[in-house]
Design a protein around this nucleic acid. Sequence first.
DNA 1: TTTAACATACGTACCGGTTGGTATGCTAGT
DNA 2: ACTAGCATACCAACCGGTACGTATGTTAAA
Lengths: 206, 206
Amino acid sequence: MIRHSERTRERLLQAAFCEVHRSGFQSASIDSILAATNVTKGALYYHFKSKEALGYAVVEEKIAKLTRERWLRPMQGEGNAIDILIGVVRRIPASPQDVRAGCPLLLLSQEMSPLDEKFRKRLERIFLDWQEGIATLLRKGKSQGTVRRDLNPAEAASFLVATVEGYGTLAKNAQDAKVWKAGIRNIVGWLRSLRPAGQLRAGRLA
Amino acid sequence: MIRHSERTRERLLQAAFCEVHRSGFQSASIDSILAATNVTKGALYYHFKSKEALGYAVVEEKIAKLTRERWLRPMQGEGNAIDILIGVVRRIPASPQDVRAGCPLLLLSQEMSPLDEKFRKRLERIFLDWQEGIATLLRKGKSQGTVRRDLNPAEAASFLVATVEGYGTLAKNAQDAKVWKAGIRNIVGWLRSLRPAGQLRAGRLA
DNA sequence: TTTAACATACGTACCGGTTGGTATGCTAGT
DNA sequence: ACTAGCATACCAACCGGTACGTATGTTAAA
């Protein structure tokens, strides 16, 4: 029997991510992660020294990664800043399952930020990188003339993140993808209002 | 020894609200509610038939009440709709403790909506009443000419709720009242944009 | 042979909930 | 007015189950 150390760790991480996303961190059960992976407790505690450490790894290696792939990477590309943001927002998974499960970042922030400073710091890092990425893109858009001159990029970035997370909450509570999609339309509408006056689309005047 | 049935129940409810607000529902400990109130387990299970029932009572009797007092009641008054909304938003508690604790509605939605349909329904009722109250006020404002004619009241109401909850999340994660206050400024700025063009304040033209 | 990578079994603490029991207040019948 | 009898409001002890974590044993690869 060959050993797959790294693979075992990754499987545990993935199962832990699902479990935490479902139940939150405090109520996430080590035993059910074990059951989902057919890994034993000894193996888990060989790879992670505690439940906390496993939770931190989920945040750093799973949730942060998701944010980078969904937001930061697409925002690196060339093109009209507003168009890019609209595209990213529209590409957020909107299936019933995704909407019902909600954003793991949101869940863990609500649950853990006041309780565990190390958890909070790791989540905050993600939020800050996220906002900074948006702000950078908006600044670039301003310099290219595709974003209104009077816009405060940092404020707009936090506003975008807040509305996305806010609608995420409403949709998760409603357990209804339609609520999410209506939210996206409103967010897109707001994003369009960030274009310079009279500029309806990139490179085209009204 | 005189009996204080109603008072005991209310004390349990208050302690349960605090505990749930701190730890979430699943991790809320019955024993710590008991310790906080110096009530015994028998007494608690006399007033509430289960932990679930206690949680539902917290939602219906504590959280819903808070929303009514903070939002619905102030919105009943006469006056410029936008001014009223700005006033309500600014009067949301912004002390460091309040910001760090966050919105209980938000926490419970994130935690419980996918797990317990009865919980979700009770929370949804609060969100819907909240949004409906705002929408009604905006409709009134439209008819009085203090709100832009082209505004969709229901969409704007959900947008307001989403931004409030979104900034609430960011501020709770940051554990920083400044983040919340900056969010409020942005929300107020957005609310002002709902006034008819050129109308900077109620009853006054620019 | 050494050690990385597990497996098994168990320890301790806490969980929500139930139990049998008790003391008090209320009410109906005389 | 008195009291029997019932409902209310509680209490202390305990239950089975589950939680995270650990100690020790085993196996396969180098």
